[in-house]
């Protein structure tokens, strides 16, 4: 849902739609989100900036709060 390989920031509405899709098969309460593994599996890192990285992680956190609240 959130790539660590490219800088383009995903859209929250797309993430929420994918979460809704997943919730048809698995209870929403059993789900969580994270970016795809590794912004820097190797020290040199992927082709995005630190700013891009933190925006993606902030999107992960804010989307999670909106979907699951603070529970």
């Amino acid at each position: 849902m959130i790539t660590t390989k490219e800088p383009t920031l995903e859209r929250e509405e797309d993430l929420r739609r994918r979460i809704d899709q997943a919730a048809r098969y698995v209870p929403l309460d059993h789900l969580a989100i994270s970016p795809q593994c590794g912004f820097a599996s190797i020290a040199t890192g992927n082709l995005l900036s630190e700013d891009d990285q933190w925006k993606k992680l902030a999107l992960v956190a804010s989307t999670a709060r909106r979907v699951w609240g603070n529970s």
Partner: peptide, 21 residues
């Protein structure tokens, strides 16, 4: 305590750390 949002593992090394490496 439910985990809803997390980073999987590695983060970009800041330029100063890459230079130090």
């Amino acid at each position: 305590m439910p985990i809803r949002a997390e980073q999987v593992g590695s983060l970009l090394r800041p330029p100063a750390l890459l230079a130090a490496r």
